[in-house]
């Protein structure tokens, strides 16, 4: 083993001291808590999604006349097709959950404060990209739910002031949903979004490494433990838990397809996927423009939170206003989600 490493070291002339230092990077002991593994988890899931996604492109055909049939083919006829598709779907849902949990963790440990505000914004951007991935991905199945969710979702974008309508035309490749629309969503899903996500993930992780892990205010301990092999083993354990969970989940809940898309015929009961329930519920409560403005303000607030938090700190120091804001936003989201899920 040592000989192999030496062979590589001779041909990839990186300073060995640097490599050893990077591997042995000391991490504060509060990181031993499993809650702090929530950052690496979405990254692993993204890799799983990229691999299964590429595999799916071997059989998926992105044309309106073939998309549904090719998805059916994958789900029912291709060897292990249900497995690959199931892992892809399961991983995408899990990724949204873990990104959210990671965001919540970072929020409540206040790791976004100076000088890490930019990294927080990169993180929120990653979250938005994850949701866009989910939206574009689902539209590719081209069953009734796909087709109508795409129509409704893109129509909502038209309601955004000023840039809404041109943005809608850009997304749809035309005024109405047409064969170009599927092509565009496909290209976003397999080309544009993966590129953006990869670049942002690299930037995000780089910033964390460069800044060092944010200190945890509630934990005064100063001891550290090395990244390699200690933390890496913890990450491997988490990774394997995820893989085992996904594989078994797909076996018990394999994927299916709904009825094929029929453009003239909206089904009676139509809803977006569960991760859009909060927005959906909110939009149903308000008029369209209030709904859109409200959502946009929320997203803007999310982006600029580190700066808002800094202002709040100045106004009311030691009042822990951030706990109140965070908890109420979180509760509101859960309430809306459950409301939509149960009552509909």
């Amino acid at each position: 083993m040592k000989r192999v490493l030496r062979w590589i070291a001779e041909r990839v002339p990186v300073d060995q001291e640097l490599v050893r230092k990077a591997l042995r990077e000391p991490l504060p002991v509060h990181m031993k808590n499993w809650v702090f593994c929530l950052g690496g988890t979405p990254a692993l899931l993204f890799c799983i999604l990229a691999v299964t996604g590429i595999l799916l492109t071997f059989y998926y055909v992105p044309s309106p006349s073939h998309a549904y049939a090719s998805v059916s083919n994958i789900t029912f006829k291709v060897r292990m097709g249900w497995f690959i598709r199931g892992i892809h779907q399961g991983a995408s849902q899990l990724m949204i959950v873990t990104v959210l949990l990671h965001m919540i963790r970072v929020f409540f440990t206040r790791a976004y404060r100076n000088p890490r505000e930019l990294n927080w914004m990169f993180g929120v951007a990653l979250f938005m990209i994850t949701l866009t991935f989910a939206f574009t991905g689902y539209s590719l199945v081209y069953d009734q739910l796909s087709y109508w969710a795409t129509t409704i979702g893109t129509n909502m974008i038209a309601a955004v002031p000023v840039i809404g309508e041109p943005l809608l035309y850009l997304l749809r490749g035309g005024p109405d949903v047409n064969p170009n629309t599927l092509s565009r969503f496909y290209d976003f899903h397999i080309g544009v979004l993966p590129t953006m996500m990869t670049l942002l993930i690299v930037a995000h992780v780089l910033l964390v490494r460069l800044h060092g892990v944010a200190p945890l205010p509630s934990d005064p301990r100063r001891e550290t433990y090395p990244f390699f092999p200690d933390h890496m083993l913890r990450e491997m354990i988490v990774g394997l838990v995820i893989l085992i969970a996904l594989v078994n989940f797909v076996m018990f809940f394999p994927p299916t397809v709904g009825a094929p898309a029929t453009p003239g015929n909206t089904p009676g009961h139509i809803r977006p996927e569960w991760y859009f329930f909060p927005t959906y519920r909110w939009l149903k409560l308000t008029s369209l423009s209030v709904g859109i403005w409200g959502s946009m303000l929320f997203v803007a607030g999310l982006f600029l939170w580190p700066f808002i938090d800094a202002i709040l700190e100045k106004i009311a120091p030691r009042r822990h206003l951030w706990v109140i804001v965070g908890t109420s936003c979180f509760l509101m989201t859960i309430v809306f989600m459950l409301w939509e899920a149960i009552v509909g």
Partner: peptide, 24 residues
């Protein structure tokens, strides 16, 4: 732990093969 979990993963993956023949 990692080693054992790896083996559990192998077991699960082998099981998927049986399910595949059944489904298709």
């Amino acid at each position: 732990l990692v080693g054992i979990m790896g083996l559990i993963l192998v077991g699960s993956v082998i099981a998927t093969g049986y399910l595949d023949t059944q489904r298709r």
